[in-house]
């Protein structure tokens, strides 16, 4: 599946399209003419070394920064310039580490996910249960470990996502920036299962991550970034040892189904 053509796949229409996106911070070019389509109802893993442009791309996607040129289209309309009120009903965002400048409890943080949405006690409880936070609901968010905080942030995003079981045309988008970087293995596995379930409900997921093997395992598509450029495709097509060596600057090999760096 190539990344720049909408006509080729026959599933639901793509609702999230990155279109010739470029962005610079002063003299530093972060994105160079990036184009890609997030497959609806699929997981796209966003990979690449530090400073490859992953976070800038995600921030353009959620409409937080205005790209120097090009655009990100959500339901056919550019995300930048759209009101947060409308974007929040289509898209939830999970940063690597969420900072909360108040002594909110876990429940209060998760409830923020419904900020522009109707109060829904059931959705909050469901999200808390799903992330195994029911024992922590009254604990202050700031007192949790980073891994636990990441679960709270994910729960907040879950509470925010449109209920796509009831209305599949309104399936949401989940934009994740290394959401499991500090989680223990059990919870990482739980999150992977959860994301799979969400795609079953039509949710489109883009997830920045560093673990290449896990990306190859769980993602339907891979976006590999290098110095502001992006290569999109299936894990098999994109994650070749030659290309990875070129991008990361270290030799790779596949060993027992895992991508490993070669120590000589």
């Amino acid at each position: 599946m190539t990344s720049t053509s909408t006509e080729q796949h026959s599933g639901p229409a793509a609702s999230l399209v990155v279109d010739h996106l470029s962005h610079s911070y002063g003299d530093i070019v972060a994105l160079r003419q990036v184009s890609a389509i997030a497959q609806p109802g699929k997981i796209t893993a966003l990979l690449g070394p530090n400073a490859a442009g992953k976070s800038t791309l995600l921030r353009c996607i959620i409409g937080a920064i205005k790209p120097t040129s090009g655009r990100v289209l959500l339901d056919g309309k550019p995300t930048h310039g759209r009101s947060p009120y409308h974007l929040a009903q289509r898209m939830a965002y999970v940063p690597q580490r969420s900072t909360v400048a108040a002594a909110f409890t876990v429940r209060e943080v998760v409830e923020l996910g419904r900020y522009v949405l109707p109060r829904n006690h059931h959705r909050i409880e469901l999200a808390l249960q799903r992330m195994e936070l029911t024992d922590l609901v009254d604990r202050p968010y700031a007192a949790l470990s980073v891994g636990q905080q990441q679960r709270v942030t994910l729960a907040r995003a879950l509470a925010q996502l449109p209920n796509s079981i009831e209305d599949s045309a309104k399936a949401g988008h989940l934009i994740l920036d290394e959401p499991v970087s500090a989680m223990d293995l059990k919870h990482v596995r739980d999150v992977v299962v959860l994301l799979r379930e969400l795609t079953g409900q039509g949710v489109t997921i883009i997830m920045a991550m560093h673990d290449l093997t896990r990306a190859a395992d769980m993602a339907d598509d891979v976006w590999l970034m290098d110095e502001g450029t992006l290569i999109a495709g299936t894990a098999c097509d994109v994650l070749t040892v030659e290309r990875l060596q070129q991008v990361y600057g270290v030799p790779f090999e596949w060993l027992h189904g895992r991508l490993l760096t070669v120590n000589d």
Binding site: A88, M91, Y93, P95, S98
Partner: peptide, 13 residues
Amino acid sequence: TLGEDEARSIGLS
């Protein structure tokens, strides 16, 4: 009280 990107992402102008 959330960071800028997050506050926006939950719908705050």
